[in-house]
Amino acid sequence: MDKTREIICIICPLSCQIKIRVKNKKIVSLESNGCRRGKEYAEQEFYNPQRVLTTTIKVKNSDSSPLLPVRTDKPIPKEKLRECMQYLANIEVETPIEIGQIIASNILKTAVNVIATRRLKS
């Protein structure tokens, strides 16, 4: 049976509501106001929604900053956000740390690295 779903496009400020009809977990039709970027976004959101994760990691030996902010260097599948958080909750790092330094590589086998976003001097 066909299902319909609405995806709010976030590509531009217009925030179009894109209507999609779905059959057997596949898009059968899509109304995107004739906007190509909107169509691509809706397809991506439907088949494989991805997000950049930003969070903090514990720092072992710093008096000034108990936390190191980090992010994934590429978006990761949306459904892995929480699992990723759990994984990172158990990691601790030591200063010094440079921006861009890899904190966890190939996290949860996503081929995505978690990198530092702040410089912490020792």
């Binding site: 969070t55 980090v70 921006i99 976003t117 702040r118």
Partner: peptide
């Protein structure tokens, strides 16, 4: 900025998607 650890900064200025601390640095 140091506490704004989320991304979305710098798209205009640096044409990059940076976090707050990265933008500030």
């Amino acid at each position: 900025l140091p506490q704004c650890i989320h991304n979305g900064f710098g798209l205009h200025r640096f044409k990059e998607d940076l976090t707050g601390p990265e933008y500030a640095q």
